[in-house]
Design a protein around this nucleic acid. Structure first.
Length: 181
DNA sequence: GCCAGAACTCTGG
DNA sequence: CCAGAGTTCTGGC
């Protein structure tokens, strides 16, 4: 199919990879190593021809990096959401979440018309999300307010939320697995 | 091509 | 504490 152009740049959170088609941004990946991100991109789009175009996408990746540095900027990027109908429904519901706010998987499931017991389907769709930050899958937390898993690392998720001004409640009343506070 | 199991979880008995 | 609920993907036969 069509060619996907991508660019890599180092930001405050580490390495940022941005991939785009003619329609818009189709992937934003975060990591520590540029090679690792390229392999991740190739795994997600096995059929596409991946072309590196750092200069062509320079202005675009600058905007994405600025968004990672300061997520409170509600910048509107052209997105090319690739996925099943179910996944796109979940991702568009995610984009309605205001900056500095978090939702639970239950609220997300109800927002798209599923039963509250279908949270695992929502979690699966979030895990398949390829567009970090622009599709704020990091704003989804567990029902008790503590962080759950994250494709690109829980530490990165915590940093992103902290920059938005979100107060993270540690899991209370339990055995205190997290030594943080 | 089919079946089984896992993956960013939550609720009810 | 244990099991089940909707969807997608991957690996083994």
């Amino acid at each position: 199919m069509s060619a996907i152009r991508f660019a890599v740049k180092v930001g405050s959170l580490g390495v940022v990879l941005v991939a785009a088609t003619d329609q818009g941004v189709c992937a934003v990946l975060l990591g520590d190593d540029a090679l690792e991100l390229e392999q991740d991109l190739a795994r997600r789009f096995p059929r596409a021809a991946l072309v590196r175009a750092d200069e062509e996408l320079a202005s675009l990746i600058d905007r994405v990096v600025a968004l990672v540095d300061d997520p409170r900027r509600d910048e509107e990027l052209p997105l090319d959401l690739r996925g099943t109908a179910f996944q796109q429904t979940v991702w568009q519901a995610l984009r309605r979440v205001p900056v500095g706010t978090t939702v639970t998987y239950t609220e997300l499931a109800e927002a798209i018309g599923l039963a509250s017991t279908s949270v695992r389907a929502v979690a699966g769709a979030c895990a398949a999300n390829a567009i970090a930050v622009a599709v704020p899958c990091h704003r989804v937390v567990r029902a008790d307010g503590s962080l759950s898993g994250y494709r690109w690392g829980v530490e990165r998720k915590r940093v992103l939320l902290a920059r938005e001004g979100v107060v993270i409640r540690g899991a209370s009343g339990g055995t205190g697995v997290l030594p943080g506070f």
